[in-house]
Amino acid sequence: KKNRAEYIFYTRDEYLLPILQLFSRRVVWEGHSLPKRKKYYQKYFIKCHRILVLTNELKKMLIALGVKKNKILVSPDAVELEIFGIHLDKNKAREQLNLPQDKILLSYTGTFKTKNMDKGLEDILLALKIINKNNILFIAVGGSLEHIQEYQELAEKLNIKNIKLMPKVSQQQLAIYQQACDILLMPFPWTEHYAYFMSPLKMFENMASGRPIIATDLPAIKEVLNQNNAFLVKPDDPQDLARGIGRLIQDQQLSITLANQALKDIQQYTWQARVEKIIKFILTEGGIEKNYQENI
Results as ranks from 00 to 15, higher is better:
residue 2 K to L: 11
residue 5 A to L: 06
residue 13 D to R: 00
residue 19 I to D: 13
residue 23 F to L: 07
residue 24 S to H: 02
residue 25 R to F: 06
residue 25 R to W: 03
residue 31 G to C: 04
residue 31 G to K: 00
residue 33 S to F: 01
residue 34 L to I: 01
residue 36 K to C: 00
residue 36 K to Y: 07
residue 37 R to Q: 14
residue 38 K to L: 15
residue 38 K to T: 14
residue 39 K to S: 13
residue 40 Y to W: 12
residue 40 Y to S: 06
residue 44 Y to H: 13
residue 45 F to H: 05
residue 47 K to G: 06
residue 49 H to I: 00
residue 51 I to F: 07
residue 51 I to W: 04
residue 53 V to F: 07
residue 61 M to I: 07
residue 64 A to W: 10
residue 65 L to I: 10
residue 66 G to N: 13
residue 67 V to I: 13
residue 69 K to C: 13
residue 76 P to Q: 15
residue 83 I to Q: 04
residue 85 G to T: 11
residue 87 H to W: 10
residue 87 H to N: 15
residue 87 H to M: 13
residue 89 D to E: 15
residue 90 K to W: 08
residue 99 L to W: 12
residue 101 Q to G: 10
residue 117 M to K: 10
residue 119 K to V: 07
residue 120 G to Y: 10
residue 120 G to S: 11
residue 120 G to A: 10
residue 129 K to R: 12
residue 130 I to Y: 03
residue 132 N to D: 15
residue 134 N to Q: 12
residue 144 S to T: 14
residue 146 E to T: 06
residue 149 Q to G: 02
residue 151 Y to S: 06
residue 152 Q to G: 15
residue 154 L to K: 14
residue 156 E to V: 14
residue 164 K to Q: 14
residue 173 Q to T: 13
residue 173 Q to S: 12
residue 176 I to T: 04
residue 176 I to E: 01
residue 182 D to M: 03
residue 190 W to Y: 15
residue 194 Y to R: 02
residue 196 Y to E: 08
residue 196 Y to T: 05
residue 200 P to N: 10
residue 201 L to P: 11
residue 205 E to V: 08
residue 207 M to K: 09
residue 214 I to K: 02
residue 214 I to S: 02
residue 226 N to D: 13
residue 230 A to F: 01
residue 233 V to T: 14
residue 233 V to H: 06
residue 241 L to W: 10
residue 243 R to V: 09
residue 245 I to R: 01
residue 250 Q to S: 12
residue 260 N to M: 09
residue 261 Q to I: 09
residue 261 Q to G: 12
residue 261 Q to M: 12
residue 261 Q to D: 08
residue 263 L to P: 01
residue 263 L to K: 07
residue 264 K to F: 03
residue 266 I to V: 15
residue 267 Q to M: 07
residue 273 A to Y: 10
residue 275 V to N: 10
residue 276 E to T: 04
residue 287 G to F: 03
residue 290 K to Q: 10
residue 292 Y to M: 06
residue 293 Q to T: 05
residue 295 N to V: 05
residue 296 I to Q: 13
